[in-house]
Simulated scan of single mutants.
Amino acid sequence: MSTSVHVHQLQRVSATEAVAWHQVVAASTAHDLPGVPTPDPGQIHAQLTGPALGSHRLSWLATGADGVPVGVAGLRVFTSPGQDHLAELELHVDPAHRRLGAGSLLLSAAVAACRTENRRSLIATAAADGPGEAFSARRGFRRALTLDHLMLRLDEDGKDRADLLRIADAEHPGYRLTGWTGTVPDGLADAFAAAKNAMNDMPVGDLDYGSVAWDADRVRAMAAVVADRGDTLLTLAAVHGDGTMAGYTEILIPQGVPQRVQQYDTAVVPEHRGHGLGLWVKAAMVRRLRAEYPGVVEIETDNADDNVHMLAVNHRLGFRSYRRTREFQLDVPAN
């Protein structure tokens, strides 16, 4: 291992350090994930300096002998009950500086932090069959989940678009659609939190992911975190006649309103499944995006490859698979 690589933990991330971080992430993403947009410098700075929900963040920067940034690692340490055994790793090494030991040094720092924080599980994501997967396998991570990434293009006309609009306009007796931007309205906060808990039964393969308990304060806090980093969160929900929120879907629009947006959660409460509500709210969200954000042309989502129901919903809406990633888990030995 090269001794010319130096790793130091970032305390309060400076503007210069955020620029260095972006430089590494941009190079790594372009090499390993061609066609995937790189977060802009503002997004990176907000990620590194803003608050996180139910967690705190640790960050490291690796530099070469000449002080050039060659690698970065971020560790999200979960703190909420039900997930306080868990940490999540993001690690990038500039392709021009790989095989010099930077990745190994960064991983060692993250694992040591997991031990200090008494975390038994470390998870990480890598492109399927890419260099990150090989790196993870060599260092003791086990493959725990495969994710299928899908894309829907909003600028395509024809049969698929007409079918999607029919789905959005379909009647669902006993249910109504409602939506909001940012923080959930107070009158819906408790119902939304109850619906959020339906995500705890989503397929997670062999990941030791734990569970999250949602309440009204937590859903408000989540929206505040998104807003503080400059992003916009759109939500559409199906509400039953008795006031229960039966299902919902969320879209994240990164700051600057780029052409590609991200699907966040979609969930239907168990007792309301089987009525096509997931398909309905997602189709209605596409219609809303077209009306309110005409500059958006792509929605990206991902599903576990064994989440047969949601994959079928997305394919019905016109989403098409375009890449795969894998989630890996390292069981961290106790001190």
Rank of each mutant, 00 (worst) to 15 (best):
L152P: 02
L236N: 11
P254C: 02
A30H: 13
A113K: 09
L89G: 00
V93S: 03
S14N: 07
L154Y: 06
G247T: 02
T79F: 05
T125F: 05
R143Q: 10
A18T: 11
R273N: 00
P258S: 10
A27L: 07
D242M: 11
W21N: 02
Q9T: 12
A304P: 08
F192Q: 14
T244D: 15
P95G: 03
V308R: 13
A144D: 11
D201T: 15
R161G: 00
P258N: 13
L122C: 00
A267H: 03
A87K: 05
Q263L: 04
A126K: 02
L107W: 15
L107E: 08
H56P: 04
T125A: 07
V219A: 01
E17D: 13
H275M: 08
A87G: 09
R316N: 09
V332P: 11
L145V: 10
V77T: 14
L317M: 00
G42N: 10
H309S: 04
Q262H: 13
N303S: 12
I251A: 09
W280S: 01
G101S: 06
A20F: 05
V225G: 00
N200W: 06
R153C: 05
L252M: 12
L188F: 09
T49P: 03
Q255F: 09
A216Y: 02
V332L: 11
A73C: 07
Q11M: 11
I251K: 05
Y264R: 14
E271L: 12
L89E: 07
G274V: 10
V296E: 02
Q83M: 05
V111A: 07
H6W: 07
A168R: 04
A137Y: 01
D305Q: 14
F192W: 13
S211I: 02
D94M: 06
E17I: 04
L75K: 12
Q11A: 12
H56A: 05
V332S: 02
N200P: 13
G140W: 10
D302K: 06
R119V: 05
N303C: 00
D129R: 13
A237L: 07
R326L: 10
L122Q: 01
M310D: 04
L317R: 02
T79N: 03
L122P: 02
P81L: 11
S4L: 11
E90Q: 12
G82P: 10
A65Q: 14
H92S: 15
S108Q: 15
H97R: 05
T116E: 14
L164P: 03
N314E: 02
V19S: 14
A15V: 11
L107F: 13
R326I: 14
A221R: 04
F192R: 10
Y248K: 08
G71H: 01
R153P: 02
L86C: 06
A168M: 08
E117H: 10
R316V: 03
H149T: 09
D265Q: 10
P81I: 12
T29P: 01
A237N: 10
L107H: 13
I44F: 09
E88R: 06
T235C: 11
